[in-house]
Design a protein around this nucleic acid. Structure first.
Length: 421
RNA sequence: GGUGAGGUGGCUGAGUGGUCGAAAGCAGCGCUUUGCUAAAGCGCCGUACUCCAAAAGGGUACCCAGGGUUCGAAUCCCUGCCUCACCGCCA
């Protein structure tokens, strides 16, 4: 959430920055400022009435104590009680309305974020490895041939968008998870966490999935709790409503959890195979740090995710997303796209984002700085990485048509063999 | 799921209708004194919002959350959430 004071003090700068995302946002800012003005006006009047009420009540107390007659004062207080109630209600309403609208304003893109409207405007900033020619089998063919997973029976029990990993395929999934978590904890210093995947509504608001994207989420109990679409939600919210000691920062957490997404509006897109799922495993990396640390932490976070692809010998490229393509809560984002020869395309396997204090403000996550002031933290996250697309790239890259899947060296001890098939 | 007990400031913990944003202690900060990694004394020490051009200084709200009773609520009532204990059920 943006600081309302920033909107008040520099509305045109804020609107100009939001405009680079989409033209719908400047109007929203005006709407919020109008409500803010009304809200403050009614709040001020209520406060004055309450001050008067408190003063009279205090006098009544003293009169009662000394045995005087206070009925005149009592009537006086009663006299403006209803005006006070009305104004108070109005102020509360406007406050809620303002907050709700403010929660629907996305983060300001960082100054360095390239401007652009759509994915085509993203900037390729580096690539690694040489993409293999796209004449291999696709992962569905390989998976069927080697008996690694079963999409049809998954559809039978859960519908489309689910997978059953079977036999060596299930073991490979487990080997990948262990490899990824060990890499991030042992080599990169993240603390492993095994969080709940069902969270309360306020956590989903904290990281920015709600209120705007409720139709993409699996909700329960009338919208009180949700299955998390990414471990980002659980991990970043761990310290919500806390004031952290600066000496503990940056905090670095990783977790592998199932992720649940309705993918509303994505029907028909990339539906073959495991590229877009309603449930999938993902290793997530989350950092909580100070504003000063934040930008450098984005670079190391991205490098931590890239290491996965390098070790697994999977060619990839890194994009810096443009203003029109970065996520709602993000100020700046690098996407890692792995080459999938069977698709003849790059697949997004990680999105590494810097949120500045946008999420922290939503979840009231602060730290006490050297001057003893409570300051909002900065948060970051990225995948390290999503399993299904990593799996797809692994199969399509390391399998020759009709041949076995040759596992990259670092994976072999985790799987317990050098190849499958 | 049932029963019971609770949720007060960074922590411990008083406070059962009025002058309580809240005693006291601890921790923290500042000063003084004592020549020795410490003690004692004194002072300061919550957050958010808001008014004022700003500072100074006011004001309002906050004792888990939301409602209610009352001229007045940390205190009484209702609901919810959470914690603890025991019972039941269960991977």
């Amino acid at each position: 959430m943006l600081d309302i004071r920033l909107l008040r003090e520099a509305p045109s700068a804020v609107k100009a920055r939001l405009e680079t995302r989409s033209s719908q946002f400047p109007d929203l800012v005006d709407q919020i400022l109008a409500i803010d003005a009304r809200r403050r006006e009614s709040e001020t009047r209520v406060q004055h009435l309450r001050a008067e009420k408190n003063r009279l009540s205090k006098e009544i107390g003293m009169m009662k104590k000394s045995g005087g007659d206070s009925s005149e004062f009592e009537n006086q207080v009663k006299g403006f009680a209803s005006e006070m109630d009305d104004l108070g209600r109005l102020a509360t309403e406007l406050d809620a309305e303002q907050r709700d609208l403010l929660l629907r304003v996305p983060n300001l893109p960082s100054p360095g974020t390239p401007e652009g409207r759509e994915a085509a405007d993203n900037a390729v900033i580096r690539s690694w490895g040489v993409p293999t020619p796209s004449n291999s089998e696709d992962h569905v063919t390989i998976g069927e041939r080697l008996g690694l997973f079963d999409l049809e029976r998954a559809a039978k029990i859960s519908g489309s968008g689910y997978v059953i990993h079977t036999g060596a395929g299930a073991r490979l999934e487990r080997a990948l998870i262990n490899f990824l978590l060990d890499l991030q904890t042992r080599s990169h210093g993240y603390t492993e966490v095994a969080p709940p995947v069902l969270v309360r509504r306020d956590c989903m608001e904290g990281t920015g999935q709600l209120p705007k994207f409720e139709e993409d989420m699996y909700g329960f109990d009338g919208g009180d709790s949700f299955l998390t679409p990414t471990a980002e939600v659980s991990l970043t919210n761990i310290h919500r409503d806390e004031i952290l000691s600066v000496s503990t920062l940056p905090l670095k957490y990783t977790a592998c959890t199932p992720c649940f997404r309705r993918e509303a509006g994505s029907a028909g897109r990339e539906t073959r195979g495991m590229i877009r799922m309603h449930q999938f495993n993902k290793v997530e990396l989350v950092k909580i740090c100070t504003p000063e640390q934040s930008s450098a932490e984005l670079e190391t976070l991205t490098a931590d995710a890239e290491k996965v692809l390098q070790l697994l010998q999977l060619p990839y490229r890194v994009l810096e997303l443009c203003t029109g393509d970065i996520g709602f809560s993000a100020a700046r984002t690098y996407d890692l796209e792995v080459w999938a020869p069977g698709q003849g395309a790059y697949l997004e396997v990680s999105s590494c984002s810097q949120f500045n204090d946008y999420q922290a403000r939503r979840m009231n996550l602060r730290y006490k700085n050297a001057e003893g002031k409570n300051v909002f933290c900065h948060t970051l996250n990225g995948s390290g990485t999503a399993l299904p697309r990593l799996y797809v790239a692994l199969l399509e890259t390391h399998t020759k048509p009709g041949g076995p899947l040759i596992l990259p060296d670092p994976l072999q001890p985790y799987f317990g063999a050098a190849q499958i098939g």
